[in-house]
Design a protein around this nucleic acid. Structure first.
Lengths: 369, 369
DNA sequence: AAAATATATGAAACCGATCTCAGAGAATGC
DNA sequence: GCATTCTCTGAGATCGGTTTCATATATTTT
């Protein structure tokens, strides 16, 4: 009767297989110099006892934890209303599972000293690398992470750190696509409801909107830009404000709403005002659903590849970690290469922009003549 | 010039402070027998060098990792549409941060062997305990976790494991409250759109619905129960099906929709059918927002304390871990207590049900005479 | 056939903490 | 005033792996 609950150690496995613990370790790490016969015997014993090596012991000696940290520095309010994070997590998790990495979630919460929280995590040597969910512009967190020396990939570029590794959705281009399409339908009074403008996503989408208008030589009207906060309410408020301005000026014929909850709020407001979509006002929302799936409200929308973003971030980080590990083990061998044959460890930062997609729905129409 | 990037070890700190590493360890672990003067000196050196002990080394010797695992066994489809998990995570994270636990996220994903995934995590000795997001009924995962011997708290009770620790929202009661309220408004043809019935939440809400009808002696009609899947589409489909049946039978005057996305779908369908809410049909949704906040659609709803659920689960688990740790260290001392003075380690399972709340909105009205 | 190299294994050092044990000095008891 | 207890500290064992080094055997080269 085996004690199934208590974990065996390499020593015990070694004894059971009649080899030394060094050999068991070699088998575990797929070291080449192990005879086939011994390898099989050891693997059998390992399987029989469902042995899994103690991660702490392994981490101690290798100084690698096989874990990556996922930092979510936002004010948490964004977490619930939006499907962004669940989808993003899913993408990251997919890669972690496939590549056998553990995923440690680090989210701020009220009442804890964020600096202390991050210091503990950064310096505990428990994480090999970090994925940073978009920190607000100017957030000192990025500085901390850079200083920690841990490899990391950020979501979104940071103006103050041009050389930082990042992946992002091309938000400017996404907003631009929305405007392009509306212009192609004949719209010229195009309003925009933006995310908070102290976030990169807010800044980028507004920039794309402005750029597109400029390219099409459409006059810009500051009263048609409303800074939202991702909430349904702020979408509602935006439309109401446009309507108020419309007393002196005409109502926009199209609105780009850069957030799914906000788009719902906008729709509700238009409905409340007795305006029909798309007959009176065209509406383009943003969401995180697969571009193949239908929008629940049949809305024309910009579909952001959020799961792909998570996957990409994780894949880039894992690649980076592998390269770092390889470099370290080469360095340890003390190899000096002849000529300049030294394998180039590229220091070029990883910087990838993923394209969003325009998905047509029933909320847009050509402007009335 | 200090090397700020590389971490110091206890040995180095000890040397710098002019003490042994044992003393440094004592300071770190707040062991009582350290003189004030030495403690201060050591703390100063620690602070000066921003020293954080290596977690792997610590874990190795204490066989405690200070990390808990959050298992999310659902088919991932539920993750994006619903605000459930983000809110739940938030609750868990809050407690983890406060209690200095790391949080490791374990989510299944396509293409990985789930059994292998969980075995690796369960036996890697990297987690002190586990919070299990509701596994479907009959999922072998629960069995695996039980066998692993790790302390854990499940979300939701499991019929096959009556002695398992769990916390949950009282889903039956929640559905019952919704029906009670509708009955009090005079409704007798009350339909229900349920979550998938192979989940505990689906089963419980349906049970509550039935129980309430029975208590009020309202005749039940199976055609008024529709099994949804949490999606907006399934809420739409549900109403359409009720409408179809209504050719031979009358339309329900009230619908309880046990999911927020489904409730939106139902609302859209009613709108499409030209039925007004609440004049023609009353609607009660379920959501995860704070009971104090307004529903974005002004809907009468059952507000589930999901963040509180996460907090409660984490707090119970942390409490459990502390008790286990205390028991272990007492056992190691080999203390035998006189009489029956031995501190009782209660083996009663932790089982907590949190109450949902009914939040009144504009989607319910008294039945038309 | 001897030398050189490749393959296969074990003994022992090592990673960086905690914790036991023993001992020294201070405080308390009788 | 001496025994006893309490307070404080350091030496060294220990956790469970990986990795270096030495050694033995098998294979290839010359």
């Amino acid at each position: 009767m085996k004690d199934e609950t208590r974990n065996k150690t390499v020593n015990q496995i070694a004894e059971l297989a009649g080899v030394s613990r060094a050999t068991v370790s070699r088998v575990l790490n797929e070291h080449p110099y192990v005879s086939d016969e011994v390898r099989k015997r050891v693997l059998r014993v390992i399987a029989e006892h469902n042995f899994h090596p103690n991660q702490a012991a392994r981490a101690l000696v290798t100084s690698r934890s096989e874990a990556i940290g996922l930092f979510v520095p936002q004010q948490l309010s964004r977490l619930f209303s939006d499907s962004y994070f669940p989808l993003f997590f899913q993408g990251v998790v997919e890669v972690c599972n496939r590549e056998n990495y553990y995923l440690t979630l680090v989210i701020e919460s009220d009442g804890v000293d964020r600096k202390q929280l991050y210091q503990r995590v950064l310096k505990g040597q428990r994480l090999d690398g970090i994925i940073m969910g978009s920190p607000p512009i100017g957030d000192p967190l990025l500085q901390m992470v850079v200083q920690s020396g841990l490899p990391f990939v950020s979501i979104g570029q940071h103006p103050d750190f041009p050389a930082v590794n990042f992946v992002d959705v091309d938000n400017a281009k996404a907003a631009q696509m929305a405007v392009d399409y509306l212009v192609s339908l004949g719209h010229t009074r195009i309003a925009m409801v933006t995310p908070p403008l102290d976030t990169r996503v807010g800044e980028a989408r507004l920039r794309g909107y402005r750029l597109a208008l400029q390219q099409h030589q459409v006059a810009q009207d500051e009263r048609l830009v409303f800074e939202g906060d991702f909430s349904e309410q702020s979408g509602y408020a935006a439309v109401m404000q446009f309507a108020q301005h419309a007393v002196t000026q005409s109502m926009p014929t199209a609105i780009v709403v850069a957030g799914d909850m906000m788009a719902q709020g906008a729709q509700r407001a238009l409905h409340a005002l007795g305006l029909r979509v798309p007959e009176d006002v065209s509406l383009i929302g943003f969401d995180n659903l697969e571009s193949s799936s239908l929008s629940p409200f049949g809305m024309t929308r910009i579909s952001q590849p959020v799961a792909a973003l998570g996957r990409e971030a994780a894949m880039q980080l894992v690649g980076l970690l592998r390269r770092v590990a390889a470099r370290d083990s080469i360095a340890k061998l003390g190899i000096t290469f002849p000529f300049d044959a030294e394998p180039e460890v590229s220091n070029a930062p990883i910087q990838r922009l993923l394209d969003a997609q325009l998905v047509l729905g029933r909320s847009t129409a050509a402007v009335k003549p």
